[in-house]
Amino acid sequence: MSHAADIVVDRLSKAYGAFLAVDRISFEVPKGTIVGFLGPNGAGKTTTIRMLTCYLPPTGGTASVAGYDVFRQSLDVRKKIGYLPESTPLYTEMRVQEYLDFKGKLHGMDRSTRQKRIAEVAARCWITDRLQSVIGTLSKGYRQRVGIADAMLHNPPVLVLDEPTVGLDPSQIREARRLISELAGDHTVLLSTHILQEVEMVCKRVIIIANGKIVAQGTPDELKNRLGSGLIVEVRGPADQVRSAINAIPGITGVDVLQNGPVCRVGVRGKNSAELREQIAALVSLRGWGLREMRTEGASLEEFFVRITDPGSAAA
């Protein structure tokens, strides 16, 4: 366990009755980094986050936040964590200002600190003009912003955000991402989301979880690389032959026929792409097919995500 890690998860598991929602996952989030927590619906993201925020007790394993054990030192953990729950539950009958003030008090902030911090987070989350509104009358997006402001209120070293950008409009999403990016350095952020661009843009690292297990983790680039880059090759020739021919080249992991006909287009997946390109070009000219086009296609995280979390393709 490195000293620099703010969140350390060690074989954490959670069972709802017989159903194992989180199955012995381990990961670390280094200090000052923003880590994306990815996974399909029902993967166990929220469950993991709830254990980290001391809302749910783990069934097994340990986790610590900012050096405190979530089980034994839960109060300390709670002090260090800023948490935006998935459903952003708020007191609808309160005004934004009152609500933030209340939360500030729960965190034991004194009056002047509260005032200062409320003004600050309100400005950062663009809710300054809505401070006097009753929360129940706010739109979903504004409530989400109040939730984010609430999570940042006590300036916690660790922020855990469960799908923070849900319900925000595109420009707000962009702003929110910028906001989160800005947090890097001072804050350690665990960001759960489905939106992959978000992760790519904001996160230094990504943890992908499916069916309660971690299926991959690393920087976005690493993961993309793991998938390998793809080539799109457009050839005038019979698709079947083209495919099997290319497939025979060592280092090729897969060929998909993307377009049939006199001119066929295939997608090629493989490791060393520069070398491959030469080999493919040589092969095509050897066979006498006309090479119309060949371009590298940057592998998307989305592709990786779908591939890695889709049980069907994993089996293939």
């Binding site: 060690d10 074989r11 598991s13 007790p57 069934t59 097994g60 394993g61 340990t62 089980f71």
Partner: peptide, 14 residues
């Protein structure tokens, strides 16, 4: 040792 750690949650609860 790891096993113990995993168990620790349960025993603490007990």
């Amino acid at each position: 040792q790891n096993e113990n750690q995993i168990e620790s949650g349960a025993s603490a609860r007990g």
